[in-house]
Design a protein around this nucleic acid. Sequence first.
DNA 1: TGCGATGTGTTGATTAATCAACAAACCATC
DNA 2: GATGGTTTGTTGATTAATCAACACATCGCA
Lengths: 181, 181
Amino acid sequence: MTKVDRRVLKSQEAIKKAIVELMAEKNFDDITIRDISDRADVNRGTIYLHYMDKYDLLDKIIEEHISNLRDLCHSASEMTFKEGNYVWFEYFADNHLFFSIMLNTKSAAYFRSRFLDLVVQEYKVEVDVTEGKNQGLSEEVILQFFGAAVVGAVEWWFKNEMPLPPRVMAEQTGVLLDRNF
Amino acid sequence: MTKVDRRVLKSQEAIKKAIVELMAEKNFDDITIRDISDRADVNRGTIYLHYMDKYDLLDKIIEEHISNLRDLCHSASEMTFKEGNYVWFEYFADNHLFFSIMLNTKSAAYFRSRFLDLVVQEYKVEVDVTEGKNQGLSEEVILQFFGAAVVGAVEWWFKNEMPLPPRVMAEQTGVLLDRNF
DNA sequence: TGCGATGTGTTGATTAATCAACAAACCATC
DNA sequence: GATGGTTTGTTGATTAATCAACACATCGCA
C-alpha cells in the first residue's frame, strides 16, 4: 500500500465534497460536471483523471462510506452494541450532509440497500439461534428484522434533522439491540 | 494583470491560513516552517516557492490585509462614516482570527502601526480645518487623535472577544466620527 | 428541420507541487 | 568543544493539475 500523493487526496476530497454539497441543493440529474469542478475549484479535466463520470463518482463515495462503516464495526467488535453504536453515530454526525441526502432523496434507494446489507452482514456474527432468547428463531428473519429497525431509526434521525445527539441515539438503539441479541 | 493559476492561489491560501492558526496557538518565534507546511498540508518546499521565510510570509499577509482595507475604503468613499465603517467591521469579523492575533500579541506592534498609518491616511481627505467645526485646529492633530481613537476601539473590540456585533460597532464609531469631521 | 448554446469526454503542451536528498546552520546537552 | 538532533534553504527528477482546444452529443427554441 504505497502512499498516495497529497495532491490527488486534496483533489478527490474537494470533488467529493462538491458533489455532496450540490446534491443538497438540486437534483442529481441536474448537476453537471462543470458544476462540480466549479464548486470544487478544480479543473474540469481533473475530475476525469479520477472518475469516469458523476455516477462513478457517487458510487465511489458510497463505497467509501460503506467501507469506513465496516472498518469502524470491526475495530469496535469488542464493544457492546451501546458502545459500538456510538462510534457509528459519531460517524453519521460527522458526515451528516452525505447521510441526510442519501436517506432523504428517493433517488438514493441504492445507498439504502447497500447500507442495509452492511448492517445485516455485520450483525450476523452477533446473533445466536442455537441457544438463549433467540433459540428456534430464523437467523435470517432476526437479521432482516433488526437490520431494518436500525436503518429505519437512522433514517428517521436524519429526516428529522437529528433531533437527538448521537450519543443518545447510540444508547437507545444499543439498549434495544443488546436486549434482543 | 494576467490571472493566477488556481494551484498557487490554493497553496498560498492554505499557507496563510496555517500560519495564522499557528500564531493563535503559540509564539511566532516557536513556529517552524515544517509546522506551517504540516498544517497547510503542503510540501515544505512549496512555501519557499512563494515566500522567503516566515517573516516574509507574515509581511505579505499584513500587506494584503492593509491593501484590502484600503480598497474597501475607496469603494466606500461615497458613504458616511457610519456606513463606511460597517464595511470595515464586517471585514474585521470575517478575518477575526488574524486581527485578534495582531492586536493582542505584543510582538505584532508593527501591524498596529501599519494599521494606524492607513487610518490616518484614509481620513486625511475627510478632515477640513479651513471651515466648520474644526476651523483653526491642526489637521495632523485631528488625524492622529481620531486615528488612535478608531484603532483603539478596534483593539478593545478584539481584546474583549468582539462583545458587540460589527454593525453596532460601526454605528457607534460612525456617529462619533461624523460628529467630529 | 435547423441553429445556437451548452455539456461531455479527450487531447497535448505547460506549469506547479511533490518528494527525497543534500549541505549548512543552529541548539541543547554531555 | 565535540556530539546528535532539528531546522533551514536548495537541488533535480517526477508526477499531478491546469488550461485551451477539440469533436461530438444533447437540448430548447425558432
